[in-house]
Design a protein around this nucleic acid. Structure first.
Lengths: 229, 229
DNA sequence: CGTGCCATTGAGTCAATTCAACTTAAGTGG
DNA sequence: CCACTTAAGTTGAATTGACTCAATGGCACG
């Protein structure tokens, strides 16, 4: 199979300046192996040897950390085109699980590193991916540390919209459950639910079914994700 | 002046496996310029052109993001030996301010990148720094998203202890104010204060003065930073 | 047409915040 | 060196936003 290109997307949660360019490179050659995982299966666990890095081809993956008493924090949702598992050390720092049925391309880490050593372009792509993840994590910190429940929920939806720029981005097909959203935003499932209801009451969004969110008023949603003025 | 070595330290907030190795390299040559900043002055602001990268020589720096209504989230405290401002894009994603009077080494970004392109060792150091920051941010996410006020405060102190391993790490000289700690932990100044008092009442720490915290029972502190069992 | 999972809504509680008073420490300038 | 001023820290009381607990509704799947 052929893995086509290294794509980096910009999921911008804030006004926060900083426009990560939508780069497109054909950096990794077609030496990945395609793997499939069914919904809710684990791709790798926190602490596993980081022998492979991955790219999402179809479907979605959640990357999370778990505390010993079961509290969970999701750091990122990897969607089609996203990389995960490149950035870590000898051991994976996160658990990766299939949100939906997924196809991923799997790259042997050693090979990728060797390639990066030789090839300037591959190196740049790896570096860009790492930098993107850092950038995303730092924006995430603001959401978790300083935003209200409503702002968080709105921010999350804005991120999803911005991640699929180019396409009709007003109807969001979300693969994750309310619990996943809660664990991403540092809230409970009930609070996420209430905030979605609130946004619905404000006529900003609509939720025709569990996994669809229609953003009727994107501008209002963006406003809801930020401080008043 | 001569900037000696690229040091990476492990500030481990959790059991979370993952031992970032205490590497020591002499990667960047002595081409940095020494700069001094007095307490509370800005080194660069979010949105500024990222022309330079920095290393803390003495003192401490806070790296933060600010929302338009003044809410602030501190992402990191850079202490002596730490790098900051390497990881970002064309524009700095954070504001860097002097916590105390600081001396920093300043490196022209273009030069650093060129050097990284040529020199494998420099490249590894840059990559390691980036990876460290990502790792730290991801741990920070768990703290902000899923820990209680007491756990956060304890985690913060544990991080400080672990960052100065090797030295007598039970007496912490902290350059930051309570407000800084609050903005790092996603709490209010009052809550931080109350949690410190609580730790004091539990005889786990003592606060002889504002900028000194003596950790009498490190093990108990570590326990307080994690879920029971 | 149950059975079970996920989502939603309501009611009551609680942890952390807000508001406010007061204490302590750190300058600053006479 | 001491009075004066300002900033930082601490404590208490009241408030509140998000949480917990509990019950119900809606789909999907066998």
């Amino acid at each position: 199979m052929a893995v086509t290109d290294v794509r980096l997307r910009s999921n911008q949660p804030k006004p926060l300046a900083l426009s990560e360019p939508l780069e497109r490179r054909s950096a990794f050659a077609a030496f990945g192996t395609t793997m499939s995982y069914v919904r809710n299966n684990t791709i790798f666990s926190e602490g596993d040897d980081a022998d492979y890095s991955y790219e999402v081809l179809t479907g979605a993956v959640r990357l999370s950390k778990m505390m010993s008493d079961g509290r969970r924090q999701i750091a990122e949702f990897a969607l089609a085109g996203d990389y995960f598992g490149i950035n870590w050390l000898e051991e994976h720092a996160m658990t990766a699980e299939a949100l939906s049925d997924v196809k991923v391309a799997r790259y042997a880490r050693g090979r990728l590193e060797r390639l990066g050593d030789e090839n300037r372009e591959v190196r740049a792509a790896l570096y860009a991916s790492l930098r993107h993840d850092l950038w995303a994590a730092q924006n995430h910190l603001v959401i978790l540390g300083r935003q209200s429940a409503l702002e968080r929920t709105a921010s999350f939806l804005v991120q999803l919209m911005d991640r699929k720029q180019g396409t009709a981005n007003n109807i969001l097909e979300i693969p994750m459950t309310r619990q996943d959203i809660a664990d991403y935003l540092g809230l409970t499932i009930e609070t996420v639910c209430r905030m979605l209801t609130k946004l619905k009451q404000l006529a900003i969004i609509d939720t025709p079914d569990r996994h669809t969110i229609a953003v009727g008023k994107p501008a209002a949603l963006r406003r809801a994700s930020q401080p008043e003025e």
